[in-house]
Design a protein around this nucleic acid. Structure first.
Lengths: 184, 184, 184, 184
DNA sequence: CATGAATGAGGGTTCATTCAT
DNA sequence: GATGAATGAACCCTCATTCAT
């Protein structure tokens, strides 16, 4: 039931973990608690489904970005997708981010998440970016940078997307164009 | 009682939020639940004390970094301090980071946190770094980048400090040396 | 659930405040503690419901008394109702009386209580009683006299109703027929 | 320790049963909790001592009243003593009244309390009062009337003593002068 | 004698989950 | 399928009481 997942999302972003109870979700969704348990075996399954739904949107954007011709364009679209995703529901995104680390991630979500990283890796390997000696590490770092900056913006309640997109791109490009292993 | 705070730290990093109950903390600390409540008026106060303790170490390192002559040296020391802090107890650091956002942060902790940012701002303003048009934004971004990368490393269970330090420095320097506002 | 309220009544009269715990009430009622809290948001709400239930019976009797033709008859019925109410469960009545003073009496119960006083005022104003210079004070005093005598009888464990009724009537009539303000 | 008893009194009248904890009493008295327990074996003992202290003042007044020549004078003084006692610390008096019923009254307090009734009985037997067919019952009733009216005044927060004294005397004299056993 | 840190049974309350209807 | 009353383990926290110093 989509209504249940959406109710879970709303409760989570409006009340935080404190108010996130199965009963509250069921009530907001307009179904009985029994019905909720018919669709989701337990609370974590509901959370997992919510995470999957949210992550899916992000991956869709990433896949679209991947279609673009140049690396610059693709990266730009990817950053934009990530920012848009976060700006839409910042608190929810942050909370789910945190939950993801705690959950015994079911296979489905795992795949979705690594799909994003795979796409990012493909983009960073494009010829219009400086070649990276360790592409896997670079990919991980870029992902971390994006996540760190975007989460922080959400936490601060930043509103506009464009400024944030510009700054994230600056960070990513700066990282990529900086030679690895410069002296200590 | 330091034993109680340390027990709280251990419970949190070993069992996560789920296992973090006042009774569990008291038991691990080897005191009765009543004793715990004689030192901390409620659960959040205990959490606050733990956050303060952990954050304090980090700020100390930052303050030492601030003493160094050049910006490069100071930044290097700062990154190193942050990495060391995180690598020591990665899970704990991440969980506390999250709690900090939720707590009605008492003044003391607030100060500690903003102190770190203030130090970072001072370092970034040094003459051996490229001048930033918006120093506040740059400071925030650099902090986010550091946090994002270091948290991710902790999440992945990365062990060695040096590689991580090098990569974080690369990201920060890359960001700083990239001119802001390059078009797409 | 009536069973819960009745269990509360029994616990209260058999064990006093000391034994009046939500767990004890639930157990005696034969329901789980969770069920109790589904019907009453907290302990005070349960107490309030019990007070309302007990007071209701008394007011009913008072209202019936009010229908009677003469003041003498009405007063007699009123006293009888109050005595009957108290004699039925003396300890419970006394304890609830006390709690009533402590509770942030919800509107419903407030009304019930003042209703009794209003009825008493109406009865005392009947023409077959001596006219009172300050009817409000007289009403309050008569109510206090009744309550004092009836509570004391309950405390002593007095059993029969008739003797007590006769004595209360004597006190009330004595008060009413005594001119106010006779000097010493 | 008188300071402890007085602290108990103050806590009780200012915070009610809810705040009446041995720790609070000790703190207000300016002694340690250990000291409190050196003087009073347990909480009820402290309460008992407080009751004894308060009741004692009342009995003293009653004994003084008993010395007066006529019944009228003695009764007047007795009522006045009771009212004064209550008006001084109304909430405390009411709470202690209630506790008295619950406590396994130690012999000392028992004696004090029945002493008051004995004095009242003696006064009511004076020749300037109408003769009572059942002097024991009359004594109990008069005591109950006094207590009911005076407690109610305290509950209402009534301030002046004189009006209350006049009304109580009216009630008592009215009761005494009313022939027992008038028709139903 | 005074102290006060320590104790821990027990109290009020929540909430994930079940199951008879 | 849907319902929602019922469950009870577990949580946070209090407070009367003890006892080593």
């Amino acid at each position: 039931m989509d209504a249940i997942i959406e109710a879970a999302a709303r409760i989570l972003e409006e009340q935080g973990h404190g108010g996130f109870t199965t009963n509250a979700v069921a009530e907001l969704a307009g179904v009985s608690i029994g019905t909720l348990y018919q669709y989701f075996p337990d609370k974590d399954a509901l959370l997992g489904a919510l995470i999957a739904r949210e992550t899916a949107g992000l991956v869709e954007g990433a896949e679209a970005a991947c279609m673009l011709a140049t690396g610059q364009q693709a990266l730009d679209a990817l950053v934009r997708a990530a920012v848009r995703h976060q700006v839409r529901r910042p608190r929810l995104a942050r909370l789910l981010d945190f939950e993801e680390a705690r959950l015994p991630l079911d296979a489905g979500t795992q795949v979705v998440r690594s799909r994003f990283v795979a796409i990012l890796a493909e983009i960073l390997a494009r010829p219009d970016f400086p070649e990276q000696s360790d592409i896997a590490a670079a990919t991980g770092d870029v992902a971390s940078i994006m996540r760190g900056m975007i989460d922080a913006a959400g936490e601060r309640g930043e509103q506009g997307q464009d400024a944030l997109v510009a700054r994230v791109r600056r960070a990513v490009l700066g990282y990529l164009s900086m030679p690895a292993g410069s002296c200590p």
